[in-house]
Design a binder for these strands. Structure first.
Length: 587
RNA sequence: GGCCCCGUAGCUCAGCUGGAUAGAGCAACGGACUUCUAAUCCGUAGGUCGCAGGUUCAAAUCCUGCCGGGGUCGCCA
């Protein structure tokens, strides 16, 4: 058991049962609310539990009285040096020094797998993120969702879920027609025509020039002779492919990876029509009707008029109003095809789905969750993580962006200027529902103070210690296998034990972060762990006997190398979840 | 106006799903480099957790109402 908090929770539950305490009703006590956590103040010991306080009411006793009984029962545990009652009824537990040696040995044995959890029970989960429209290169706005989604997927994978990372390509709406027309203009330009300024409503960006050139190369003047109805599908296909090619390149630059790129157009075709299926299904459940919606409260839109619409009863599932499925021209709304898409995911075996979206989609959460609940008969679960906007600054000044003029900061610009690791870590060093100010100047200029380097430096520093150890003890073996045999009971310094305790929090943190779906917790934890490592390192300056390497003590050195090796395992695993590199040396 | 998110140290933010005396970083001040890389560390100072009620052994955390900031609001994608 490498998760000491789970381990001791069950030990304490056993201890409670052994006291023979019962509820006032005579029934057994509810021990499920008992938690074991690291105490906020290290002087309180290694572990703390609220057991007595959560049991007090049911047992009809004072918390401190119960605590005394439980503490007494715990004294029998050979790993517990002391169990003291404190404050309103906490039980503070101090562990035997030998416990940490055994714990570290189990970490070494677990190796790379330390911290992995079976929390997810191998349940299939589909994480959809990025899903930028295929109408141009990715811009910074996509950056945060991409990184958060990628890290969340990594986290859930580490916590034992069967994760599929998915990208939804919106290649069916009218926007891709606009895209095709924009590309067609560039095609004419490539054939030598003077196209003047790009008309309002079309995509003006230069990135379509190569597409136009490619079209000219391939078709010559052939397309010019066609009606739009004939050239549009051809140009559309080619342009979307080109855009996706570009986007995949952008994602690769940010080291973001997807398992599935799902095309909206593929919902219909090859003898199937998911949209119709979904609508039919909802109709069968009597969840569709034709009616009018009440106007929004407060200020009425200028052009408001009552209109009959085909509506989905999303209010039956917690939404604020019912939502339209058909446009007035009879075609499906975006919402309708999105229902079909989530339905398709469900049919592919994903009862558990997560969408990572920008905060501007906030109004979309309830209706989509309602739809998933409805169409899966309550069996499917959709969670939506909203990422707040990223505001760009340069030296304190806001960076202006205009999508219409085609002048926006691309994701590629950011990565090129700042680097992948700092970008990713910065995006993850914040809760996803808090806004984020991203200042190029700060991130680059103050890169030495950037938390990502602090964490990476800890990893590199440990690697350096091993290089030094190999020199100091030429011919010795400090490989993982050898470290398993290290005399870990020589680790008695408080800083060393504090580092071990920090390492011990890892499995607990992984599970908490996965349950909350909050990858940022990993980033903050890594910072704390790095801090514990740097702190212990520096204590060696005043007290040379505390240095990791003691040239005349190979046994002690081996034990300490084993300790920092455990820290290195965790940092590597954590940075791996975040998709950030773990270098062996800083440059 | 409805819905969603945010409000914690001068600044940027954590706060482990209700626990003990609310924590980091930056900025300020004072220290530590003949060192296993000082890209580091140690110390000092800094708070009415937006405001007011409520829930209970216990609230920054949960509930209600305000105040302030952002997002969004019938067929767009």
């Amino acid at each position: 058991m490498t998760n000491i908090f789970k381990d001791f929770t069950s030990r304490i539950q056993s201890a409670v049962l052994s006291t023979g305490l019962t509820a006032r009703s005579g029934e057994a006590l509810d021990i499920s609310r008992i938690v074991v956590e690291p105490p906020r103040d290290p002087s309180h010991g290694d572990l703390a539990t609220n057991a007595a306080m959560v049991l007090a009411k049911g047992a009809g006793m004072k918390p401190r009285d119960i605590a005394e009984k439980i503490a007494a029962a715990l004294e029998g545990d050979p790993d517990i040096a002391a169990a003291e009652v404190a404050g309103p009824g906490f039980i503070n537990i101090r562990l035997e020094p030998g416990f940490w040696a055994a714990f570290l040995a189990s970490v070494l044995k677990a190796g790379e797998g330390y911290g992995r959890s079976d929390l997810g029970g191998n349940v299939k989960v589909n994480v959809e993120y990025v899903s930028a429209n295929p109408t141009g290169p990715m811009h910074v706005g996509h950056c945060r969702g991409a990184v958060v989604g990628d890290a969340l997927a990594g986290l859930l994978d580490f916590a034992g879920y069967d994760v599929t990372r998915e990208y939804y390509i919106n290649d069916a709406g009218s926007q891709v027609d606009v895209l095709a027309r924009s590309a067609f203009l560039r095609y004419r330009e490539a054939l030598g025509e003077d196209i003047g300024t790009i008309p309002e409503g079309l995509y003006p960006g230069d990135y379509l020039k190569p597409v136009g050139a490619a079209l000219a190369e391939r078709y010559g003047e052939e397309l010019l002779a066609m009606d739009e109805a004939d050239w549009l599908p051809i140009v559309k296909d080619i342009t979307i492919d080109a855009m996706m090619e570009m986007i995949r390149g952008d994602l690769a630059a940010l080291s973001v990876h997807h398992d599935v790129f799902f095309s909206e157009r593929s919902l219909v075709g090859n003898g199937k029509n998911r949209v119709e299926e979904a609508i039919r299904d909802l109709r069968d459940r009597d969840l569709i009707y034709v009616g009018t919606l009440p106007p929004p409260k407060g200020q009425l839109p200028d052009d408001w008029e009552d209109r009959e619409q085909t509506l989905f009863r999303s209010t039956d599932f917690g939404d604020d109003v019912d939502r339209a499925l058909l446009k007035s021209d009879g075609s499906y709304t975006y919402f309708a095809s999105d229902i079909a898409y989530h339905y398709d995911k469900y049919l592919r075996g994903f009862g558990y789905q997560i969408d990572v979206l920008g905060a501007d989609h906030g109004g979309y959460v309830k209706r989509m969750q309602a739809a998933v609940k409805a169409i899966t008969g309550g069996e499917g679960k959709l969670e939506i993580k909203l990422c707040q906007l990223v505001k760009l600054f340069r030296g304190g000044e806001p960076v202006k962006m205009s999508k219409r003029s085609g002048e926006f900061v691309t994701l590629r610009d950011v990565v090129d200027e700042v680097g992948v690791d700092p970008v990713r870590f910065m995006m993850l060093y914040r809760k996803n529902d808090a806004p984020l100010d991203f200042d190029f100047q700060k991130v680059t200029e103050q890169s030495r103070d950037n938390p990502v380097f602090y964490v990476q430096y800890a990893h590199a520093r440990i690697a350096s210690v091993f290089r030094q150890a190999d020199e100091a003890f030429a011919g010795s073996d400090f490989g993982p296998e050898a470290l398993c045999a290290a005399p870990l009971d020589l680790l008695t310094d408080e800083g060393e034990l504090a580092l071990a305790a920090k390492i011990a929090e890892w499995p607990r943190l992984v599970e908490a972060a996965a349950e909350a779906q909050e990858p940022h917790r990993i980033a903050f934890y890594l910072y704390e762990l790095a801090s514990a490592l740097h702190g212990q390192w520096n204590r060696g300056k005043d007290l040379p006997q505390l240095r990791f390497i003691n040239a005349d003590r190979s046994d002690l050195t081996t034990a300490r190398l084993a300790l920092v090796y455990c820290a290195k395992l965790v940092i590597r695993a954590g940075l791996g979840i975040l998709g950030v590199g773990a270098p062996d040396e800083m440059r």
